[in-house]
């Protein structure tokens, strides 16, 4: 058993070991500190020439990584808190994501920007957000998020091997979670199947005790944990059976696994930690209904407010298991 943090750290060690074009850059990543969340721990000791500590300059970090990628290296840049992706928006949107298509496929931009997102740690309005929704639907930019169902190391290595720029979104609460190696799921009455793309798979978690689940719960990243707890509660206390579809690739949208599940359940409930309006769930709902008439749908997300510092307020603003359960009951009522 290993934690998500250990797997991500392993992936970086492995990538640097295997490919000398891989460079890691970011703020405070040198040992012994090893990065704000320790994902880069040990790298600077082992690969001192290819681990580049930077000043607090997110825009330049992302731009430099884009330039390195254009000229044959494979940079992995860390943005210390995902909230700071606003500072790299120009570099991702108007440079890295555009180069390949704008230059008529003459170039490649194999760049990874890692961004720890998410709240529930009391960090307040500017260090708790899930801002990835701002980068979904940007042509040329792939957005990926690990979860505990797939190997986070494989996912990060796939992103590093990708020829396109990738925004790699790591929910902070995922770091101490155990990666559920095959056969170790705590959902004992469920089967897990890998679907969608080989590189960034989705996982369909289906109850084995029924062939007709009542609804589909769609989520990504840490929110699998909320969906899982809700599914257990719904099963035990309400006899409402859920199939879960857990995405690794958030953008571009690849919905086949979801549509396969919806053809069985006809009900979609999306769970995300970003704010509700104009979010990931909204696009999932729209696309699902375009593909299949007559679906019933609900979204659970953060309220449209900044994320408060006080625990009571943060809990009220971010989605909780109870909200997922209530929405599922409404949807099946």
């Amino acid at each position: 058993m290993a934690t998500v943090l250990e797997r991500l750290n392993h992936a970086l060690h492995h990538a640097m070991e295997m490919d000398e074009r891989v460079y890691v850059l970011g703020e405070d990543i040198l040992d012994p500190y090893g990065g704000a969340f320790k994902v880069t721990r040990g790298l600077s000791t082992k690969f001192p020439g290819r681990v580049l500590p930077t000043p607090i300059s997110e825009a330049a970090i992302a731009g430099i990584a884009a330039g390195m990628a254009l000229r044959g290296l494979r940079p992995v840049a860390e943005v210390m808190f995902g909230d700071f992706v606003t500072l790299i928006a120009d570099q991702l949107v108007n440079h890295a994501a555009k180069f390949r298509w704008m230059y008529n496929d003459n170039v490649r931009v194999p760049l990874v920007v890692r961004a720890p997102m998410g709240g529930r740690r009391g960090y307040g309005p500017t260090h708790s957000q899930s801002l990835e929704k701002m980068f979904l639907g940007i042509p040329g930019l792939t957005v990926v998020a690990p979860n505990v169902l797939g190997d986070p190391a494989e996912l990060l290595q796939a992103a590093i091997a990708d020829e396109e720029p990738v925004l790699f979104v790591e929910h902070k609460l995922l770091y101490p979670c155990q990666w559920l190696e095959p056969g170790h799921s705590e959902l004992q009455d469920y089967s897990i199947s890998k679907m969608g793309s080989e590189r960034y798979p989705a996982f369909t978690v289906s109850p084995v005790f029924t062939t007709t689940p009542h609804l589909t719960l769609a989520c990504y990243g840490y929110n699998y944990e909320l969906a899982r707890q809700a599914a257990l509660e719904l099963t035990m206390e309400r006899e409402i059976f859920c199939e879960l579809v857990v995405f690794s690739q958030l953008s571009p949208f690849a919905l086949d696994p979801l549509l396969a599940s919806l053809s069985r359940t006809r009900r979609l409930l999306t769970v995300e930690e970003g704010s509700l309006s104009l979010g990931w769930g909204a696009e999932l709902v729209a696309r699902s209904i375009e593909a299949q008439d007559g679906l019933r749908v609900r979204r659970v997300a953060a309220r449209d407010l900044p994320i408060a510092n006080a625990r009571s307020l943060e809990d009220a603003i971010l989605p909780q298991v109870g909200a997922v359960v209530r929405a599922a009951v409404e949807l099946t009522g």
């Binding site: 430099i64 290296l73 120009d90 704008m102």
Partner: peptide, 29 residues
């Protein structure tokens, strides 16, 4: 927005400079 051999251009003021710095790092490495 043109590209030819080792020549690149983009229409964003300022944003091209970090990209050029990254290229310089790559050439040195």
């Amino acid at each position: 927005h043109i590209q030819w051999r080792d020549f690149y251009s983009n229409g964003i003021q300022g944003g091209i400079v970090p990209v050029a710095a990254g290229m310089a790092l790559a050439e040195r490495e």
